[in-house]
Protein backbone atom coordinates (compact mmCIF):
# COMPACT_ATOMS: atom_id res chain seq x y z
CA UNK A 1 0.00 0.00 0.00
CA UNK A 2 1.49 3.39 -0.99
CA UNK A 3 3.10 5.27 1.89
CA UNK A 4 2.04 2.44 4.22
CA UNK A 5 -1.17 4.23 5.04
CA UNK A 6 -4.67 2.93 5.03
CA UNK A 7 -6.89 5.40 3.21
CA UNK A 8 -9.33 7.00 5.58
CA UNK A 9 -12.99 7.05 4.86
CA UNK A 10 -14.36 10.44 4.27
CA UNK A 11 -17.39 12.05 2.85
CA UNK A 12 -15.61 15.21 1.80
CA UNK A 13 -14.57 15.99 -1.76
CA UNK A 14 -11.09 16.66 -3.01
CA UNK A 15 -9.79 20.16 -3.39
CA UNK A 16 -10.09 21.59 -6.84
CA UNK A 17 -6.39 22.33 -6.60
CA UNK A 18 -5.84 18.65 -7.22
CA UNK A 19 -7.34 19.00 -10.64
CA UNK A 20 -6.77 22.43 -12.00
CA UNK A 21 -3.63 24.18 -12.94
CA UNK A 22 -5.04 27.62 -13.35
CA UNK A 23 -7.37 29.83 -11.36
CA UNK A 24 -9.68 30.26 -14.32
CA UNK A 25 -10.69 26.67 -13.78
CA UNK A 26 -12.78 27.90 -10.87
CA UNK A 27 -15.37 28.91 -13.41
CA UNK A 28 -15.86 25.33 -14.56
CA UNK A 29 -19.17 23.86 -13.52
CA UNK A 30 -19.16 21.57 -10.52
CA UNK A 31 -20.42 18.72 -12.70
CA UNK A 32 -16.93 18.33 -14.11
CA UNK A 33 -15.10 18.37 -10.84
CA UNK A 34 -15.82 14.83 -9.77
CA UNK A 35 -13.68 13.39 -12.56
CA UNK A 36 -9.91 13.29 -12.40
CA UNK A 37 -7.69 15.30 -14.64
CA UNK A 38 -10.42 17.31 -16.24
CA UNK A 39 -9.95 20.97 -16.83
CA UNK A 40 -11.70 23.68 -18.74
CA UNK A 41 -11.45 23.51 -22.53
CA UNK A 42 -7.85 23.93 -23.57
CA UNK A 43 -6.47 23.28 -20.10
CA UNK A 44 -5.52 19.69 -19.67
CA UNK A 45 -3.71 18.36 -16.65
CA UNK A 46 -1.51 15.33 -17.15
CA UNK A 47 -1.60 13.16 -14.05
CA UNK A 48 0.91 10.53 -13.00
CA UNK A 49 2.81 8.37 -13.57
CA UNK A 50 3.37 8.76 -9.80
CA UNK A 51 0.44 8.10 -7.48
CA UNK A 52 -2.40 10.60 -7.64
CA UNK A 53 -5.27 11.23 -5.25
CA UNK A 54 -8.48 9.49 -6.26
CA UNK A 55 -11.85 9.49 -4.54
CA UNK A 56 -13.92 6.39 -5.13
CA UNK A 57 -17.51 5.98 -3.95
CA UNK A 58 -17.74 2.34 -2.92
CA UNK A 59 -20.96 0.88 -1.58
CA UNK A 60 -22.17 4.35 -0.69
CA UNK A 61 -19.05 5.50 1.12
CA UNK A 62 -16.50 7.94 -0.22
CA UNK A 63 -13.01 6.46 -0.02
CA UNK A 64 -9.84 8.43 -0.66
CA UNK A 65 -6.71 6.77 -1.91
CA UNK A 66 -3.53 7.47 -3.80
CA UNK A 67 -2.81 5.27 -6.79
CA UNK A 68 -0.80 5.38 -9.98
CA UNK A 69 -2.98 5.96 -13.06
CA UNK A 70 -2.16 2.40 -14.19
CA UNK A 71 -3.92 0.82 -11.17
CA UNK A 72 -7.17 -0.85 -12.13
CA UNK A 73 -10.40 -0.35 -10.22
CA UNK A 74 -10.18 -4.02 -9.22
CA UNK A 75 -6.69 -3.68 -7.73
CA UNK A 76 -7.66 -0.44 -5.98
CA UNK A 77 -10.71 -2.10 -4.41
CA UNK A 78 -8.87 -5.22 -3.32
CA UNK A 79 -5.40 -3.98 -2.46
CA UNK A 80 -6.03 -0.44 -1.26
CA UNK A 81 -9.53 -0.58 0.19
CA UNK A 82 -9.81 -4.20 1.34
CA UNK A 83 -13.00 -4.66 -0.65
CA UNK A 84 -12.29 -8.25 -1.67
CA UNK A 85 -15.68 -9.36 -2.99
CA UNK A 86 -14.61 -8.67 -6.59
CA UNK A 87 -12.11 -11.40 -7.44
CA UNK A 88 -9.04 -11.25 -9.67
CA UNK A 89 -9.08 -14.32 -11.90
CA UNK A 90 -8.41 -13.77 -15.60
CA UNK A 91 -7.65 -10.04 -15.25
CA UNK A 92 -8.49 -9.69 -18.95
CA UNK A 93 -12.20 -8.83 -19.02
CA UNK A 94 -13.34 -12.33 -19.82
CA UNK A 95 -14.32 -14.35 -16.74
CA UNK A 96 -16.57 -11.90 -14.89
CA UNK A 97 -15.39 -12.67 -11.37
CA UNK A 98 -14.45 -8.99 -10.85
CA UNK A 99 -17.92 -7.73 -11.83
CA UNK A 100 -19.10 -4.61 -9.98
CA UNK A 101 -21.80 -2.08 -10.71
CA UNK A 102 -20.66 1.33 -11.90
CA UNK A 103 -23.51 3.84 -11.84
CA UNK A 104 -25.89 0.87 -11.88
CA UNK A 105 -24.32 -0.94 -14.83
CA UNK A 106 -22.28 -4.12 -14.63
CA UNK A 107 -18.62 -3.67 -15.53
CA UNK A 108 -15.39 -5.65 -15.31
CA UNK A 109 -13.45 -3.88 -12.54
CA UNK A 110 -10.23 -5.35 -14.00
CA UNK A 111 -10.77 -3.47 -17.25
CA UNK A 112 -11.35 0.01 -15.83
CA UNK A 113 -8.69 2.24 -14.33
CA UNK A 114 -9.38 3.39 -10.77
CA UNK A 115 -8.79 6.97 -11.88
CA UNK A 116 -11.51 6.61 -14.54
CA UNK A 117 -13.99 5.43 -11.93
CA UNK A 118 -13.46 8.43 -9.64
CA UNK A 119 -16.81 9.95 -8.81
CA UNK A 120 -18.87 7.03 -10.13
CA UNK A 121 -21.05 4.99 -7.80
CA UNK A 122 -19.35 1.60 -7.35
CA UNK A 123 -21.33 -1.27 -5.83
CA UNK A 124 -19.78 -4.66 -5.08
CA UNK A 125 -21.37 -7.86 -3.77
CA UNK A 126 -20.69 -6.53 -0.25
CA UNK A 127 -22.91 -3.55 -1.03
CA UNK A 128 -25.92 -5.61 -2.08
CA UNK A 129 -26.53 -7.40 1.21
CA UNK A 130 -24.94 -8.37 4.50
CA UNK A 131 -24.65 -11.76 6.25
CA UNK A 132 -27.55 -10.76 8.50
CA UNK A 133 -29.66 -9.36 5.72
CA UNK A 134 -28.91 -11.13 2.47
CA UNK A 135 -30.03 -9.65 -0.82
CA UNK A 136 -32.75 -11.88 -2.39
CA UNK A 137 -30.33 -13.07 -5.11
CA UNK A 138 -27.70 -13.91 -2.46
CA UNK A 139 -30.30 -15.88 -0.50
CA UNK A 140 -31.38 -17.70 -3.67
CA UNK A 141 -27.73 -18.63 -4.40
CA UNK A 142 -27.46 -20.25 -0.97
CA UNK A 143 -30.78 -22.06 -1.26
CA UNK A 144 -30.14 -23.34 -4.80
CA UNK A 145 -26.58 -24.49 -4.25
CA UNK A 146 -25.42 -22.02 -6.87
CA UNK A 147 -21.79 -22.13 -5.88
CA UNK A 148 -19.09 -24.71 -5.33
CA UNK A 149 -15.66 -23.20 -4.76
CA UNK A 150 -17.31 -19.79 -4.59
CA UNK A 151 -14.66 -17.84 -6.41
CA UNK A 152 -16.94 -16.68 -9.23
CA UNK A 153 -19.87 -16.09 -6.86
CA UNK A 154 -19.50 -12.40 -5.91
CA UNK A 155 -19.15 -11.48 -9.60
CA UNK A 156 -22.11 -13.66 -10.55
CA UNK A 157 -24.21 -12.15 -7.72
CA UNK A 158 -23.61 -8.65 -9.05
CA UNK A 159 -24.19 -9.73 -12.68
CA UNK A 160 -27.42 -11.57 -11.71
CA UNK A 161 -28.68 -8.57 -9.75
CA UNK A 162 -28.21 -6.23 -12.68
CA UNK A 163 -29.59 -8.81 -15.13
CA UNK A 164 -32.79 -9.16 -13.07
CA UNK A 165 -33.26 -5.40 -12.89
CA UNK A 166 -33.24 -5.35 -16.72
CA UNK A 167 -35.11 -8.67 -17.12
CA UNK A 168 -37.51 -9.14 -14.20
CA UNK A 169 -39.15 -12.19 -15.76
CA UNK A 170 -36.48 -13.96 -17.82
CA UNK A 171 -36.57 -17.20 -19.79
CA UNK A 172 -33.80 -19.76 -19.36
CA UNK A 173 -32.38 -18.74 -22.76
CA UNK A 174 -32.34 -15.08 -21.70
CA UNK A 175 -30.54 -16.04 -18.49
CA UNK A 176 -27.91 -18.00 -20.39
CA UNK A 177 -27.34 -15.18 -22.87
CA UNK A 178 -27.60 -12.36 -20.36
CA UNK A 179 -25.04 -13.90 -18.03
CA UNK A 180 -22.65 -14.79 -20.85
CA UNK A 181 -20.06 -12.42 -19.42
CA UNK A 182 -19.44 -14.61 -16.34
CA UNK A 183 -17.80 -18.01 -16.13
CA UNK A 184 -17.91 -20.71 -13.43
CA UNK A 185 -15.18 -23.31 -13.72
CA UNK A 186 -16.94 -25.61 -11.23
CA UNK A 187 -19.93 -25.68 -13.56
CA UNK A 188 -22.63 -24.56 -11.15
CA UNK A 189 -24.65 -23.01 -13.95
CA UNK A 190 -27.69 -25.15 -13.14
CA UNK A 191 -27.88 -23.77 -9.61
CA UNK A 192 -27.30 -20.22 -10.85
CA UNK A 193 -30.11 -20.54 -13.41
CA UNK A 194 -32.42 -21.82 -10.69
CA UNK A 195 -31.43 -19.05 -8.30
CA UNK A 196 -32.23 -16.43 -10.92
CA UNK A 197 -35.53 -18.08 -11.86
CA UNK A 198 -36.53 -18.39 -8.21
CA UNK A 199 -35.69 -14.77 -7.43
CA UNK A 200 -37.73 -13.68 -10.45
CA UNK A 201 -40.65 -15.93 -9.47
CA UNK A 202 -40.67 -14.48 -5.97
CA UNK A 203 -41.22 -11.07 -7.44
CA UNK A 204 -37.63 -9.99 -7.85
CA UNK A 205 -36.38 -7.18 -5.70
CA UNK A 206 -36.09 -3.45 -5.57
CA UNK A 207 -33.41 -2.12 -7.89
Amino acid sequence: MPEGKRPEETGSGISRRDFFKTSTAGAVSTALISKQGIAAPGEVTKLGPDPVKVKLIVNGKARRLKVEPRVTLLDALRNELDVTGPKKVCDRGTCGSCTVLMDGKPVYACSILAIEAAGNQIVTAEGLGSPDKLHPIQKAFVENDAQQCGFCTPGFIVACQSFLVENPNPSVKEIEEGLGGNLCRCGTYKGIREAVLETAAKGGFDA
Binding site: K35, A40, V44, T45, K46, G48, P69
Partner: peptide
Protein backbone atom coordinates in the same frame (compact mmCIF):
# COMPACT_ATOMS: atom_id res chain seq x y z
CA UNK B 1 1.38 -2.70 -17.23
CA UNK B 2 3.96 0.05 -17.73
CA UNK B 3 3.67 3.38 -15.94
CA UNK B 4 1.97 6.16 -17.87
CA UNK B 5 0.54 9.63 -17.58
CA UNK B 6 -3.19 10.18 -17.81
CA UNK B 7 -5.23 13.04 -19.18
CA UNK B 8 -8.92 13.60 -19.60
CA UNK B 9 -9.62 16.42 -22.06
CA UNK B 10 -13.13 17.80 -22.55
CA UNK B 11 -12.79 18.86 -26.17
CA UNK B 12 -11.94 16.99 -29.35
CA UNK B 13 -9.27 19.55 -30.10
CA UNK B 14 -7.44 19.10 -26.80
CA UNK B 15 -7.58 15.34 -27.28
CA UNK B 16 -5.95 15.63 -30.70
CA UNK B 17 -3.29 17.99 -29.30
CA UNK B 18 -2.42 15.45 -26.60
CA UNK B 19 -2.25 12.53 -29.00
Amino acid sequence: MNRFQYASPVTKQSAVELL
